[in-house]
Simulated assay, not measured.
Amino acid sequence: MVTKQVGHAPEDGDVTRADSLAREIFSGVANKWALLIINVLGEETLRFTELLTEVGGISHKMLTQTLRRLERDGLVRRTVYAEVPPRVDYRLTEAGAALRDTVNGMCEWTRRYLSEIEAARGRFDARSSRTAQ
Rank of each mutant, 00 (worst) to 15 (best):
V2G: 09
T3Y: 14
T3R: 15
T3M: 11
Q5K: 13
Q5H: 09
V6N: 09
G7H: 05
E11C: 06
E11I: 12
V15S: 03
T16A: 09
D19H: 09
S20V: 08
A22F: 06
A30Q: 07
A30G: 03
N31Y: 02
N31T: 05
N31W: 04
L36S: 15
L36K: 12
V40C: 00
G42I: 02
E44R: 14
T45P: 01
L46S: 08
L46M: 14
R47G: 14
T49H: 08
V55D: 09
G56I: 08
K61N: 07
K61V: 10
T66G: 05
T66N: 05
R68A: 13
R69D: 13
L70T: 01
L70N: 02
E71N: 12
E71R: 05
R72W: 07
D73H: 15
R78Q: 12
T79C: 00
T79P: 02
P85E: 06
V88D: 01
G96T: 02
A97E: 13
T102Y: 14
N104A: 04
C107Y: 03
W109K: 04
R112G: 01
L114H: 13
E116G: 10
A119R: 13
A120I: 03
R121Y: 11
F124N: 02
F124T: 11
A126S: 14
S128D: 14
S129H: 08
A132T: 10
